[in-house]
């Protein structure tokens, strides 16, 4: 999976976990302002990353990401 495909997949999973439209999100979308979710949604997202991409990203690492792009970096590190 190349970077672009990975970005698309992570955006899809973020959209699912936060109940958003994937088309409205990009790697620059921020978790705090653009998504404004509760911690339980981040738990759901981390679970989906494990299910779909077979990577374990620690919740505290995922929670420290400012943008979706930061999260893609973390996922890439774990792959």
């Amino acid at each position: 999976m190349d970077r672009k495909e990975l970005e698309a997949k992570v955006i899809e999973l973020v959209a699912m976990a936060y109940g958003k439209n994937a088309e409205d999100l990009s790697v620059d979308s921020t978790f705090k302002e653009d998504l404004a979710g509760a911690s339980i949604q981040m738990v759901g997202l981390v679970s989906e990353l494990e299910n779909e991409l077979d990577v374990m990203v620690a919740l505290q690492d995922a929670s420290a990401c400012v943008t979706i792009g930061d999260l893609v970096d973390k996922v890439e590190e774990e792959m």
């Binding site: 738990v43 759901g44 679970s47 989906e48 494990e50 299910n51 077979d54 374990m56």
Partner: peptide, 11 residues
């Protein structure tokens, strides 16, 4: 449930 078989097995 949040986790699928493989992810749960690992956890």
């Amino acid at each position: 449930t949040k986790l699928k078989e493989k992810a749960l097995g690992r956890r």
